[in-house]
Design a binder for these strands. Structure first.
Lengths: 200, 200
DNA sequence: ACCTGAACACCGTTCAAGT
DNA sequence: ACCTGAACACCGTTCAAGT
């Protein structure tokens, strides 16, 4: 057996995400990541393909965090808390909890990693993690009673709307409004989406 | 009178946008823009503050293009073509034409400048051009009959949804689907938004 | 197999200088 | 006022070499 590897792909991605969290996406540099791992920039190339592949890896990490956060979310009591204050009398489709958990998990991830999060909107998602996230939304939509042929389009629109809001918030596009306003914005967005999904 | 300036802020922004259109956002470089204008990189600093301000200027240019395209759009005949095929029987709120024109103008701008467009989602919009774009949406929402106190929140959500879709499409996030599918996606998104705006 | 070291073309920005 | 020229610290990536 050869020598034990000193750093792994996981180490590289973790270091890159920490750098982004602490100092912004423009600080995520092959040199800086190497520095953080006490290694030459060139040592990274064996574990990630290069700068672009490193950013794709960050997208993968974020998507995994979203799906895992959503999966770990406690099943909300009936009636569902996040929706309830907004429209007390409206019917809740069965299965909606999964979609709600995904939406909140996405926003939570954006809040934890505001600098890296906008990558999700700028890089096409074709990895296994991206497929897993998409499939989770598929499942939620089907559980909510959407006909199978409507699911793919609804997934694209729902994901894009949530992603767009979370990315905007993370990038500071709503910086003029404080958290309470943005919370109400997000709740209203979810109400809009529910309306679209439950109306014929 | 002093010597005539050789380049203007407009020249710099135009050169930068052309570079982005032709070779991607990563090619928009102080050195490269200077090269295109046959000028030293340092000559740009008098007209734009630096790299960041140059990108803010690009955002400004894109927003101006959006509002001007929308303003120049011919008033659609009754019934409104873009909505009509989707839901023939549904009522059209008065004033909706302006919102429809803005939505399509935004998507058109994204198509003309796919590399630069995602900047709109990643940079807070606080310039005069951003205010003008926001005010146009305000006007459309009021014309559509929305109560005044609902307008600001609705503007944030409508703009974010349209922006998120257009940016996703521009960035290639829907690259697996051909134009007809994306057209139908966009039309469905507009239908969702109309539903949200016309339901209590 | 995994990492180092030197090198290259390029980047954003500074400073001082020209006209 | 507007632009040049040299310079600096830094970037992504190459190549060849070490162990």
């Amino acid at each position: 057996m050869g020598r034990t590897a000193q750093i792994s792909r996981t180490d590289v991605l973790a270091a890159a995400l920490e750098l982004a969290d602490e100092a912004g996406l423009e600080s995520v540099t092959m040199h800086a990541v190497g520095r953080r791992l006490a290694v030459t920039p060139m040592a990274l190339y064996r574990h990630v393909g290069g700068k672009d592949a490193l950013l794709d890896g960050l997208v993968e990490t974020l998507l995994t965090e979203v799906t895992e956060t959503a999966a770990a979310a406690p099943a909300p009591a009936e009636p569902l808390a996040p929706w309830e204050p907004l429209a007390p009398g409206e019917p809740l489709a069965p299965g909606e909890p999964r979609l709600v958990a995904l939406a909140y998990a996405m926003r939570d991830t954006a809040r934890r990693h505001p600098a890296a999060f906008p990558l999700l909107l700028s890089r096409p998602a074709v990895t296994a993690a991206a497929r897993a996230a998409r499939d989770a939304v598929y499942l939620g939509l089907r559980e909510a009673g959407l006909p199978a042929e409507s699911v793919p389009r609804a997934e694209r629109l729902v994901s894009t709307a949530i992603l767009g809001f979370a990315a905007s918030e993370a990038a500071g596009r709503f910086a003029g409004h404080d958290q309470a306003v943005r919370d109400a914005d997000f709740a209203e967005l979810l109400r809009w989406l529910r309306l679209a999904l439950t109306t014929s």
